[in-house]
């Protein structure tokens, strides 16, 4: 089987009415093709966090997803302000989210660490005033 499923999604800025739609859709695809439930859960959590980050911090962006028989690769990119200090941002508890976002239950500073925890490979490319790209890979067969 060499089939590759490719999906592209637009992530709008600050629109909570459709936040998580891309992750929810990918979750459905993975379940349908028979990926193990715990892997589906890990992938959806990592992708949802990245999606919410792009929406809240990155003024919206795009998600590009490729699924083959062994893995899923998710690229979420935005043209937002970028991350000034990535090491600091990766620390659990550090957040730059405004109060309005915190009131909704986000902004606990767990997003990036949650993505790291639930993915097998995480690559973040960011530049101030240019944007951020988060590349998440999850393998379907865990070693």
């Amino acid at each position: 089987m060499n089939n590759v499923v490719v999906r592209d999604y637009i992530i709008p800025a600050n629109d909570f009415t459709i936040a998580g739609e891309a992750s929810s859709n990918v979750r459905k695809i993975l379940s349908q093709i028979g990926v193990a439930p715990d892997i589906v859960k890990r992938t959806s959590i990592a992708m949802y966090e990245a999606e919410i980050n792009a929406m809240i911090h990155g003024k919206g962006g795009q998600a590009h997803v490729e699924i083959d028989e062994n893995k899923i690769v998710i690229r979420i990119s935005d043209q937002g302000p970028g991350i000034e200090d990535l090491d600091l941002a990766m620390q659990e508890g550090y957040s730059t989210a405004p109060d309005s976002i915190r009131e909704m239950g986000f902004g606990a500073g767990m997003g990036l660490s949650n993505i790291k925890k639930h993915s097998d490979i995480l690559e973040i490319n960011t530049a101030v005033n240019e944007g951020t790209t988060v590349l998440i890979t999850v393998f379907f067969k865990q070693e």
């Binding site: 909570f16 009415t17 936040a19 998580g20 992750s23 929810s24 979750r27 439930p37 859960k41 959806s44 959590i45 949802y48 966090e49 919410i52 909704m104 239950g105 986000f106 606990a108 767990m110 997003g111 949650n114 925890k117 639930h118």
Partner: peptide
């Protein structure tokens, strides 16, 4: 929400004071 999302097990009753749309997304995920 990030904490809940990582910790909730399938079959759990999730108790939260939040009532916004994101609660539905987390419950579903």
């Amino acid at each position: 929400l990030s904490h809940a999302m990582a910790k909730i097990n399938e079959g759990d009753v999730w108790i939260t004071v939040h009532t916004n749309l994101n609660v539905v997304a987390v419950a579903s995920l």
